[in-house]
Design a binder for these strands. Structure first.
Lengths: 111, 111
DNA sequence: CACATCATTAACGTTACTGTTAATATTTGC
DNA sequence: GCAAATATTAACAGTAACGTTAATGATGTG
């Protein structure tokens, strides 16, 4: 659940989602991502740190030019989020909704 | 895309996700939700406003006691978010990743 | 080695969010 | 009508997030 928090906190920012959308087309170095979102390199660097902290992206430093840090998408957090969404969707798929409601609302004291 | 922003901004807060988890078990009045997350009614009321703004919950005021506002989950934003996640997941399902990367990284100037 | 390049961190100011208590409807019950 | 109950908004303080410019680290180039 703590992992979901980092994931959603990372996805909550439009700039970071834009970065993800760009990375969908392939790995990119930090500078190129900064250009893509029209933001100063320092600002984007911090966004990338948030994305790294959430495990949504990964920095590959093993290229011809060691200065370039190529960023790539990581699948795990997205899959975990989908799993949580599937649980929420169960609210509607289980069409016992009204029955469950009755049961829940009938209980005495939810200490 | 602006809708996704409101959705993810709403989900980014742990308290609001907790509210959603509680609502998965059935509709609840605002006060009961405040108790469930151990927070003052005013604080939770504002969280509920964020959830309403994102369309994640809905307030049904049509009960026996008109003072109680029963909150219920709304499906649409969750479905929309899943759709976006599916698009991101396409990054891995299309195993042309490395090829696409090559094509993209070969372009000259993406003005 | 001197200098440019890529990326990150540091410092600064601004803005937005969060929670609490107090005040404001709206409704219920006597 | 008056007091209690439910929910929201208002006002306040504290914290965290965001973006910019300047400084630091690390790597490549002449």
């Amino acid at each position: 659940m703590a992992e979901l928090d980092a994931t959603l906190a990372a996805l909550a920012d439009p700039t970071r989602r834009k970065v993800i959308d760009v990375l969908r087309e392939g790995p990119r170095p930090a500078g190129e991502l900064a250009q893509a979102v029209r933001m100063s390199p320092p600002a984007l660097s911090r966004h990338l740190r948030v994305l790294r902290a959430g495990g949504l992206v990964q920095a590959e430093s093993g290229g011809a030019d060691a200065r370039l840090r190529l960023y790539t998408l990581r699948q795990e957090p997205f899959t975990a989020l989908q799993a949580w969404l599937d649980q929420v969707q169960a609210f509607w798929t289980e069409q016992l909704g009204s029955f469950k409601d009755h049961v829940e609302r009938t209980r005495k004291d939810p200490t």
